[in-house]
Amino acid sequence: MGAELLRVEDLEVSVGEKEILHGVDLTIGRGETHVIMGPNGAGKSTLAGALMGDPEYTVTSGRIFFDGEELQELAVNERARRGLFLSFQNPVEVPGISLENFVRSALEQRTGKKIRIWEFRKQVRKVLETLQMDRSYAERDLNVGFSGGEKKKAEILQMLLLSPTLAILDETDSGLDVDAVRTVSEGIREFQKDRSASLLIITHNAAILNSLEVDAVHILADGRIAASGGKELIPVIEREGFAEYETSQREEAGA
């Protein structure tokens, strides 16, 4: 196991009045890939949002440490600057800036260094190729008029260019056809080549994980981590679903 990068301690998170996460513990080491699976409504996206600092979610209790620093007090952009990245389930369309210019200025903001346009363009083109996206996407306004699949690919493109230390992928595979899942998976594998980069992949579909190295799998059900294990958990889930974890959770709560 790599040196600790992220540690979540007994995290409770609410949306409005409603508590969604009831005490989540999670530790991710440097260079590790963790997977979170779980049924709809279990709180997977809430966890992703809370880590990134989505104002929609309120952390009511617990702590989050990232690279030794407590995240709670940091603004969203400060978290990004420290190497956190979230691939959105529904990326927002932003007219007025091209995908390429946006990523370049985001990178400049993060690093504080001016980036050479032509070198960056070469890099963008290479990533577009990996993701089987047409070159024209770099020139198009950020996510504007992109299909669902292209939006997801554009998220992976941003991840690859921004090279965060921890990338959280919130159901990046949902709504993608088989080919697109394979392409996105290719992009993630590219990201894994950087041995110090960590991933937290949220999904309820095992297909995207087939060709990836996975260090740990956690089952999130009813706002708690119901089980953790290695890659061997994945086929079990595929066969049997989450029912077992949900029930056991309820029983525990009732006991």
């Binding site: 990134m52 952009n77 990004a80 990245f85 985001a106 903001q109």
Partner: peptide
């Protein structure tokens, strides 16, 4: 939209 852009490092 603000959250999305900030998550990429923009103030």
């Amino acid at each position: 939209a603000v959250f999305y852009l900030m998550s990429r490092g923009l103030s």
